[in-house]
Structure formats: structure tokens, C-alpha cells
Design a protein around this nucleic acid. Structure first.
Lengths: 256, 256
DNA sequence: CGGTTCCTTGAGAGAACTCAACGTCGGTGG
DNA sequence: CCACCGACGTTGAGTTCTCTCAAGGAACCG
């Protein structure tokens, strides 16, 4: 399978499709705009970006920030490499997410964007973005919402939490992103390797493994490589709640 | 001294002064706008906010986000309290900084804003902000810049760094903020207690103390309570470089 | 002066890391 | 078809870093 479409609801994606048929159209910014603004947003988006294969970079830290991207399928990580040569994963971008927002107020990208999985990307040139923002308060509002959502997520994950809290929060966050609304014990497929998860959560790869093993011993999950089934989301949620990146989930509260 | 104006260049501040005479006018958003936009920005700002005393909160996490604030003097920390009762300091806001930007895309404040030091604040109601953004692309741009700057800072500080790297980066960052451009070994006055610094850097208070003591043993700083003199900024910078929140500093590079 | 808060230092505990080894999987080439 | 290789995931043993707990001193304030 050269192109992983499992997170999507459709298996018929093309690299030249219009936003109208884009499987992420409800998650992409265009989904929440008025008809007029949506048309203009879609008109500015270049959808014919070729697939990005695993490890290929969309842009590199330090490059002049020339565009913002929308993930249409797959998974992109944004990361930096410090002067000691250590990689730092700053976040994962799933279908519907915007990539490169942290460069909006700067001239250069502060982080690189690298495909974690073969991905399909839409490109929105910076000039077009400026025009859109200058002429539509609504688009501006929604963009602001995305940037500050990223800010909230970064601040939440940067908190001082234990390895178990981090991993639990990550699992629940990914579940919410990959199968939104599903309350039953869901089976999710983590697109990224353990190394990237660990790096993102500021843990060692081995620590993530050990925590997953411990969760499995406690019958809270069933893990098989990239596939994880959350058996006791409530237990995980009780651990992860302080981190604050997963939904309030009345259902879970009620069940607990 | 009921009102700490030391970071400012003037000692004659009033609680009703106009932006024209505001000591932070160059740091505040208004400093980088065109004359027309600046007038409108200043016109929307309510400058007659009473002093905020240490420990007093500007707003509390969960409240409906009704405004954005500009710090005119003093220091504000934004923080959350998780369900375990632990406080998490998300950032410090110094004169010229905007507070509450992480609520721009949400209906409620995700974090509380609490005075670390007696402070003076300007208030910008949300409605006014929307109007400004809808009618001035320039103001929108600058606001975007602030939000994504905050995002970059949060992402940088959330990296996986040692206690020494964190403290060194924090000292350099504060020096840059409190006495910008100064290259000579500067004496800075940290407005916040060790507890808040430690919490912000995700360390124990005692660890921050120990690191500062170690820096002092190595003749890299001279520390006396809230006053810190950076004797070897180059050495600190070599430690802090990977964190990436301090300036590139050609001078320091050259000297190193 | 007593009370409180903050800063500092020490000793021990614990969480996560490093180093190392091993099994699995998928791709590649003989 | 199968051996080989590299990347990834998992597990164990020992180490290191940071935290926790504890106590004392300094500064501030009523």
C-alpha cells in the first residue's frame, strides 16, 4: 500500500481532486467558512501537490516561509534539530491540520515539516494567505483559532507530567483525532514510530514502550505495534486529565 | 515602592496616561503600526485599568474571554491549575506583551493571568479587537506575529533540555527582554520568585537554586536574590543555544 | 518582635535515561 | 526461495539526573 488512507473515510483519493471532494473538507479550514469565503479559500489552495514520501520534507527550518500547508492525508511532523544534533518533534499534523502556522509572524520557518507517513498536501502561498486575511475577517478569525489552538496544545504538552500521564494523554488525543466522537473502545493506528512519539513527549523510546507494556498489563489497552486498542479509556482519561489536551468527555466522566 | 517601574525608562507613570506617553509604546503593538492604525489601536485600548497587585488575577482560566490585555508595567504570569491541584506557569508577560492571546480562537481563557509584581495593564475588549482586525490587515498581521511568537517560545521551552540548559536560556531570555541590546555583562532583576521560574521551566525550586549556585561557583553569574549579574553570557549561551529562545548574538558568537 | 514567605543547602528516594541485547518485520539481492 | 540487512519494537540492568523531604537562614511586614 503505497499511500496510507486508513485515517480517511474514503479510499478514492486523487492527487488532483478539488476541495469539494477532499476527504478532509470538514476538518480543513474551508469546512467552517461561509460559502463565499470557502470558495475563495479553495480557490487559493493548490491541491496538486505530489505525494510526500516518508522522511521527505515539505520545508526545512530556516527556509524562507513561502506558504502554509494543509494536510490532506497522511501525517506530517514538525521538528527542529538543535546545535547538539538532537531532533525535537514539536507536533504531528493530521488530515485537516495546517502546517507552518508558527511561521506566520516570522520570515523563516522555525521548524521543519517531515512526512511521517506517505502524505498528500495542499499548498497555500503566503501572498494568497495575506490577501485572504486582508479581505475576509472570517478567514482571519479561523486562522487565529488554529494558531491559538496549536499554542494551547504546545503549552499543555509542555507541562510537567509523568511518563504515564503523557502517554495516556497522547493516546486519547490521537483517538479523538483519528476517530472523533467514538465512545466505544476504539482501535487506532498510530502513524508514527515510537521514536517520534517519545521525542514528542520528551521521553526515551524505551520509556514509551515500557509505559505501553504497563498499560497492557493493567488491561487498559491492547497494543500491537502501530495498532492500539483502548480498552479502558476512562482509566487513561483519569491519568491524562491534568494534561488537558483531551476532551472533557461527559460520557467518560459519567462512566467513571 | 508600591509600584515597580524599574524595567521602564521613566518613573512618572500614571494610571490614566495615554499611549502617547506610555513607556512601552515602542514594545506595545502600537509601536510598529502606521500612524493611522496606531491611532485606532490606541483609541480602542482602555488605559485606565487600576493597578494589579501581586497575586491578583486579571482573569481566571475558564472565564469567558472578553478582552486581550497589554502589560504596561510590571510582570504577569499566565498559568493553569490542573485537576491534581498543581499550578503550571505557562509564561511570563513583560511590558509591551499581550496577555490572553491563547484565547483568541476560543470562547474561554485557557489559563489565568496573575500579577507576579504590582503591574499596570491596558485592556482591549474583544469586540474592539475584532473590529480592528476586520478593518486593518496590518494590525491583524502584527497580532498574528505575536501569537506565533508565543507559539514559538512555548515550543522552544517545551523541548527536552537539562536543568542547566533551561536556566541558562531563561537568564539570557530575561536579559534580552529586560535590557535589550546590552552586550556588556548586564545586571538584571528577575521580577518573579524562584518557585515561578522553576515551575515555568518544569523544575523543582531547589533545582533552580542549585543550578544558580553552580553557575556562581563557575563564575558565570553573580546572584543575589532577585538580582542576577551575567558575568559570562558566552558560557551561558553555549549551554542555552539548543533551546533556541535567545538571540543568535553575533557578538557572542564572535567572542566565543 | 513574631509570623510568613522566600532562598538556600543537604541527604535520600525515585523516575527516567543510557547502554545493551534480542526478536520481528519488510525489503533486497543472490 | 532464502539469507542478509536495516529499521523498529521490546525488555533487562545499571546509572544519572532531578525530585522530595527536611531544616536553617534571610528578608519582609504587620
Amino acid at each position: 500500500m503505497p499511500f496510507d488512507t486508513r485515517p480517511l473515510n474514503t479510499s478514492t483519493t486523487t492527487s488532483h481532486g478539488s476541495c469539494l471532494y477532499c476527504p478532509t473538507s470538514t476538518a480543513c479550514l474551508s469546512g467552517s467558512l461561509t460559502a463565499n469565503d470557502r470558495n475563495r479559500w479553495n480557490g487559493a489552495l493548490l491541491t496538486h501537490i505530489p505525494l510526500t514520501h516518508t522522511g521527505k520534507s515539505l520545508f526545512t527550518a530556516g527556509e524562507i516561509a513561502s506558504a502554509v500547508y494543509v494536510v490532506r492525508a497522511g501525517c506530517i511532523k514538525s521538528c527542529t534539530v538543535d546545535d547538539d544534533g538532537n531532533e525535537h518533534v514539536r507536533g504531528f499534523h493530521l488530515p485537516g491540520d495546517l502546517v507552518g502556522l508558527d511561521a506566520l509572524g516570522a520570515s523563516h520557518y522555525p521548524a521543519s515539516a517531515i512526512a511521517v507517513t506517505p502524505s498528500q498536501i495542499c499548498r497555500l502561498p503566503r501572498g494568497q494567505l495575506q490577501t485572504l486575511m486582508a479581505t475576509s475577517a472570517d478567514i482571519t478569525q479561523h486562522l487565529m483559532g488554529r494558531v491559538s489552538r496549536d499554542l494551547r496544545l504546545a503549552l499543555a504538552i509542555s507541562g510537567n507530567y509523568s511518563a504515564e500521564q503523557r502517554v495516556a494523554a497522547f493516546l486519547l488525543y490521537m483517538q479523538e483525532r483519528l476517530s472523533p466522537g467514538s465512545m466505544a473502545p476504539a482501535t487506532i493506528r498510530l502513524p508514527m514510530p515510537r521514536r517520534d512519539i517519545a521525542n514528542y513527549l520528551r521521553l526515551a523510546t524505551e520509556t514509551v514502550c515500557r509505559v505501553l507494556t504497563r498499560f497492557e498489563e493493567h488491561k487498559q489497552i491492547v497494543s500491537n505495534d502501530k495498532t492500539v486498542r483502548l480498552l479502558q479509556p476512562v482509566a487513561l482519561w483519569n491519568m491524562a486529565e491534568p494534561v488537558g489536551i483531551c476532551q472533557p468527555r461527559m460520557q467518560l466522566r459519567a462512566a467513571a
